[in-house]
Design a protein around this nucleic acid. Structure first.
Lengths: 229, 229
DNA sequence: CAAGTTACGCTACGAGCCGTAGCGGAATGA
DNA sequence: TCATTCCGCTACGGCTCGTAGCGTAACTTG
């Protein structure tokens, strides 16, 4: 997955590339992202942290954006979708999991920066899709098929392309809403928001506009600070 | 709105700042964003294009991110929400308008880059909220109140805070979905997608999963290639 | 084992951009 | 007139970039 630049053929002659160096570089990149963020991250700094020469980085990654993409893509693979019993709970769960991932400093600064670079780099866009976007659609596919087995959603339409469009739509809506809430509006994605979002997704606009917060079955006895002003 | 850095008090002595220089700088910034994108945009280049000295830029904007934010924020103010007769049409309209805005190279590269910077800059986050996010919530407020007058949505709940939460939620869902579809998934936001998204938003997940694309009133006689394989 | 091949660490380098200082001059208010 | 503030210009140290060149290390092939 983290296959660097001029893909070395699986079996070639000469000295092989050091897998340990790869791991050290990617780990150093993540650590540096945490401490200084994207814009102040330099290739020299990463090389120094990883204990390798700067030239070794350039032999594997042509640009900072590709290195950083490989460094954080693996973090998105840790997302899981355990069966929480019903579609609503599955939606709320994946929303909270994804939000937690986006709370990590290395994840959010890298994701947005790489996306910014990708707006002027077609190859990088494709690489992002392969490394992150397409891989996470499995979450929607899993949750959807489970909901279908439970009878919460109708079975797939005969047209496979139509199914793909629906899956893509749901993916963009869920991921987009969480990203926008977290990183653009800069507001917390907590249980209450996840509940409200799931209501909107499952039942549509008119329901979420009337029902005061859905089921108020909150078990946390958090004493809700009085907001002054 | 495009009020630069050490806010000069409204009436001071000495030579006033040149408003023409402000306009030239912001226009030059947008033009440079179109041509070279965020990462290759330099302060010297902007100054040269605007016909001002580099020091003049630094006297007004402390960082590239603030300059670029001011340069593109005005573009978001051009978004409008004409009354298209029903809530569904209003949703589809704002989705397509916003997508068209995000298709402009200067808008997308600047938005994502500034958001990336903001992940490690609290002040910039606040500035983004003021300059873009909060200002565009008017679109949701307008569309919502119109839908309420038409009887398409229930009236506001008694709790004003609950209303604000719902408006924020809808804003994040619509804006987030369009941004994610456009810039992350890298797929076109066209009429078909807008229709499907509006269906999801208005009627919920189960409807969008069954109905084959809503009204199939597509006038394009595109002959649908046979997918081999 | 010897030869060929590829990766690595190290050093050094020109180039470009950053952000600031310092100057003389221009445009305002007192 | 005088003080104040902005402007354009030049120059500068500092940092990062990405590459070249070298000797050496690791591994494959014959």
């Amino acid at each position: 997955m983290a296959a660097p630049d001029p893909l070395p053929s699986p079996q070639r002659r000469g000295r092989p590339r050091s897998a340990a160096a790869d791991r050290a570089i990617l780990a150093a990149t993540r650590a540096a992202l945490v401490e200084v963020g994207w814009s102040r991250l330099t290739m020299g700094e990463v090389a120094h942290r990883a204990g390798v020469a700067k030239t070794t980085l350039y032999r594997r990654w042509a640009a900072k954006s590709e290195l950083v993409l490989d460094a954080v893509a693996v973090l998105f693979d840790e997302l899981e979708l355990p069966d929480r019993g019903c579609l609503r709970a599955d939606v709320e769960g994946v929303v909270l999991s994804f939000a937690a991932l986006l709370r990590r400093p290395e994840t959010k600064t890298a994701l947005m920066a790489v996306l910014a670079e990708s707006t002027t780099d077609q190859a990088l866009r494709a690489r992002i899709r392969e490394a992150i976007v397409d891989r996470q659609k499995r979450l929607v596919l899993d949750g959807r098929s489970r909901a279908q087995q439970r009878g919460e959603l109708p079975p797939d339409p005969p047209d496979a392309a139509e199914t793909a469009r629906v899956v893509d739509l749901i993916f963009d809506v869920i991921a987009g809403a969480v990203v926008h809430r977290s990183l653009v509006s800069d507001c917390p994605v907590d249980e209450a928001w996840a509940r409200q979002f799931a209501t909107l997704l499952l039942e549509g606009l008119s329901t979420v506009s009337s029902a005061p917060g859905g089921d108020a079955s909150e078990g946390d006895t958090q004493p809700e600070e009085h907001p002054r002003g």
